[in-house]
Design a protein around this nucleic acid. Structure first.
Lengths: 196, 196
DNA sequence: ACCGGCTGTATGCGATAGCGTACAAACGTA
DNA sequence: TACGTTTGTACGCTATCGCATACAGCCGGT
């Protein structure tokens, strides 16, 4: 079987591009990295999957860390949610609270950024909302427009536009809009500990 | 010879720690990753250097990208604190970039919310600013006003008001304001995992 | 005791990663 | 037309990666 192996990730073309960018021949890179030129050729063409030891040496020859070399091929670590694509996720006409999550559900994502619009008199923490957050998680909220009231653990805090509040998200809490205009809230919930 | 191989990087103990943290047995991880349990054991003990294909499968079984898995072993050298520049209200007239941190430095705080104003032509992370955060950290940025360009790891992403971008914050990156008006950016940096 | 189920590890064998060598093609230079 | 030199790749061979299997140790339940 002389076919190209199933690309775990197409690191080969990347190495080739980097090598070309540095104007190195296979033998040049071989000398710098301590990896034989035929091996480099095979890796570049995706015919073999190098061991970490070899891959690290190749990266070193390119003056990169291995993680940096690999990261180039792991596209998708930049996720953009366009304004036009943003959809109000959970809109609740009954409570006047609509929320949309701005951060994508990537693996390893620990913080969630969400935008909330509260109609006059609206209250968060209604039926559709998660009642509380994971133990140890922390929440920050920035008031962008209007005025809101944070009720947390029996205490009442009035917030105006521009105010930013940070609190333990595993306490029972909810936001209210006591004003007569819409209030806009940006919330960040950061998980406390990993895994379940 | 049954000795441990020359560690390219001690990825083995890290895999073991991550596996323990997820309370997985070798066979559990074997099933999740598609890598045999004996192989996992050998890799963990540093007796063999896995190929990239195998290493990537192991990383996937740990719900990590390979670069993330490797970064944990390569990291530890970057402890960037730009507190001096990020003091509330601090601005940099030279670059036209002013930033303020909205979250207090509480113990246990993992996410930092900051607000940035970029004058026309301004560039963040410019002069003597190590443009990377702690290894494993994740950043989300929401464009509130104006237009900005995110340059990350050689790639260019144009963002308009309302767009939200999420990326690995330990990549070299910076924001630019190519427009003729001020741009306002809300950024959330969430520290990476690992505290054990 | 004895058991079934779990843990991680030793063993043996294909498959292949990785090396040295040798080769064909493309460049100049004469 | 040679002739060096450089390019990337094909060829064998050995080391070892990676698998299925089997094994020893550790628990908790009859």
């Amino acid at each position: 079987m002389a076919t190209t192996i199933e690309h775990p990730n197409p690191i080969g073309p990347r190495i080739r591009a980097l090598r070309d960018a540095m104007a190195l021949s296979l033998r040049d890179l071989s000398e710098r990295s301590g990896v034989s030129a035929p091996m480099l050729s095979q890796v570049e063409r995706g015919e073999t999957s190098p061991t970490l030891a070899i891959a690290a040496r190749i990266a070193a020859g390119l003056e990169l860390r291995l993680s940096q070399l690999l990261r180039l091929d792991e596209g998708g670590q930049v996720a953009i949610v366009r304004a036009s694509e943003r959809r109000p996720g959970t809109s609740e006409p009954t409570t006047g609270h609509s929320a949309e999550i701005l951060t994508p559900p990537l693996p390893g994502q620990r913080a969630e950024l969400s935008r909330h619009v509260l109609a006059p008199g609206a209250v968060t923490g209604g039926a559709g909302d998660p009642p509380m957050h994971e133990a140890g998680s922390r929440e920050s909220a920035l008031v962008q427009e209007g005025r809101v009231v944070l009720q947390i653990d029996g205490e009442r805090h009035e917030l105006a536009a521009g105010d930013c509040v940070t609190f333990d998200a595993d306490l029972p809490h909810h936001f209210e809009n006591p004003g007569s205009d819409d209030a806009i809230l940006l919330a960040v919930v950061c998980a406390g500990l990993r895994r379940s």
